[in-house]
Amino acid sequence: MTESSSPLPHAKFRCRGVNVHYGMAQAIKDNDIDIYDKSVTSFIGPSGCGKSTFLRCLNRMNDTIDICRVTGDIRLDGVDIYDTEIDPVQLRARVGMVFQKPNPFPKSIFDNVAYGPRIHGLASNRADLDALVESSLRSAGLWDEVKDRLSSAGTGLSGGQQQRLCIARAIATQPEVLLMDEPCSALDPIATEIVEELITNLGETYCVVIVTHSMQQANRISERTAFFHLGELVEYETTHDIFNTPKDERTIGYVSGRFG
């Protein structure tokens, strides 16, 4: 399974026997997966296969849904994140998230980006905060477009810009992991290209996990790809292997476009 020639990266997440139930229905069935640091990992699969649900387990976003129940073992740097000692709020600061639809707060661009640093106390003074906001916006490739209108509303930006603002907002919180739930599905092709490039760059510094419904996108940006089907992790390989030498019948069917 370890055909990649590069030295073994550090496994940021180690998941064993993860099950998720929504009320009576089981959404995730007994999944094992390791997710590596400083790389981009894609989750693909047909709609309703549980890839988003699994993603939301990684920063315990599922906690906000009353009927959702997660069992199994998910470790971040060797620590069980579902341990009662773990504070989900703190966890989410370390494991940031970008959503399908851009969701900037109805505040200024600056306040959007400064939101995380402010609540987590990451900047001791105004200058630090300014610097942090600037560097985050630069990392998100948005600085040049918005530097002259930082105080205008974040909701006034175009869709692609809004999504990059959300990414900048996530980066500003200084997370270790970035989860992205179909971040380009609401964007036009040009905006998608820009965001994809951004994600590739982010993969050099962060552990990035992205859920996508586009196989091409997974192919373009990720080093590893996991294929989910009906709540089951069917196959998890380097992206190259998944698309060129899939082993499982269902994977073959999906990547060749027979269903999905």
């Binding site: 940031g96 609540i119 907002r169």
Partner: peptide, 14 residues
């Protein structure tokens, strides 16, 4: 909208 709540929780806000 729930998306705003998600956005905030996703950044580690209480």
């Amino acid at each position: 909208p729930q998306s705003l709540r998600d956005g905030s929780y996703g950044l580690g806000a209480t």
